[in-house]
């Protein structure tokens, strides 16, 4: 009973935070409410017994997306771009459409047939998967296709972000130049938190085989470490042309693809034979974690913008 009460309060808070993020005044305030929204939704996942999702939501929805959006607000403020309120007719139409959509979705949810979950099917095959965490087993073994393609989607998104670079800034470190006050909060935390973050990130990947956690959660925490170190001026953001960083970007998909091709010998692409499952999955996860961390960090840092730090035109395309 008290559990349902807690859920009802949490749902109300989630909706209030979402409303403030979507319809409240001021972009900065909207983003702050959106970050709060991410934390609340992560709590909701905990309540739904989906701890792996909660970890991903907390690290990504509340963490990285927050950094990304706050950075965007700061950059947009510099352009002085302002939006006017929409006309009443638009608000009313949008409200009508939204109400209709909610009604259809809510009604569909209530009318869903009783769940015939895949828990039993997953549990039955779990011993062959090489890991004990069913979510990790689904991600890296049973539905490896999804995860392989996802890692490639991440790369495609980063290529999209980089393609927005102005010609004169190509080859410069990713993102805007970072300025940090020496001895300030950011520069202190930028030195204290990264070692702890690395520990947590690596632990999440390792623990993901048997408990909650995995390559995505761990990779996201590591991405946050890279971002923090970059923003605090401890780590110089990598140049978009740096070959070593590019190798880190493709390591995950490449290892995954090779493992998939090796599976051809065992029957079909991406077949993971049970005898080699554990080491194979851990290898894929390690490479995937590295790639996820670097890809997400670079995507959040954004395209290079500091034309002054770019190499001279005749040196462009050369590797460092």
């Amino acid at each position: 009973m008290s559990g349902v009460f807690f859920d009802a309060v949490l749902c109300a808070l989630i909706l209030a935070a979402a409303l403030a993020a979507v319809a409240g005044r001021g972009l900065f305030r909207a983003v702050v409410f959106f970050i709060l929204y991410g934390v609340l939704v992560a709590t909701a996942w905990l309540r739904l017994d989906a701890i792996d999702v909660a970890l991903a939501e907390a690290a990504i929805g509340a963490g990285l997306t927050g950094v990304l959006l706050l950075g965007a607000v700061a950059r947009l403020a510099r352009t002085g771009a302002r939006a006017h309120d929409p006309p009443l007719a638009v608000v009313l139409t949008a409200g009508l459409a939204a109400t209709g959509m909610t009604a259809v979705l809510g009604w569909s949810f209530l009318e869903l047939p009783p769940p015939q979950g895949l828990q039993e099917a997953v549990a039955a095959s779990l011993p062959d998967s090489g890991v004990e965490n069913p979510v990790t087993a689904v991600l890296l073994n049973f539905r490896a296709w999804d995860t392989l393609l996802e890692s490639i989607v991440l790369l495609a998104a980063l290529i999209g972000v980089w393609s927005l670079t102005r010609d004169e800034a190509w080859g410069a470190p990713a993102g805007i130049p970072q300025h940090v006050r020496p001895g300030g909060v950011l520069s202190t935390f930028g030195r204290v938190l990264p070692p702890i973050g690395v520990l947590i990130g690596v632990y999440l990947v390792w623990a993901g085989a048997s408990r909650a956690g995995g390559a995505f959660q761990g990779g996201t925490v590591l991405a946050a470490v890279i971002l923090l170190a970059a923003m605090a001026g401890v780590l110089r953001p990598p140049r978009v042309t740096a070959r070593r960083w590019r190798m880190a970007l493709v390591a995950g998909p490449v290892v995954f693809l090779l493992a998939g091709l090796a599976g051809l010998g065992a029957g079909a692409f991406l077949t993971i034979p049970p005898v080699h499952a554990k080491p194979l999955i851990l290898t894929i996860e390690a490479a995937l974690t590295l790639s996820i961390a670097v890809t997400l960090a670079l995507a959040v840092l954004g395209p290079p913008e500091d034309a002054a730090a770019a190499p001279s035109p005749d040196a462009k395309g050369e590797e460092r």
Partner: peptide, 10 residues
């Protein structure tokens, strides 16, 4: 159910 969880993380 672990399958939706994995898809949601993706």
């Amino acid at each position: 159910d672990p399958v939706p969880q994995a898809l949601i993380i993706t």
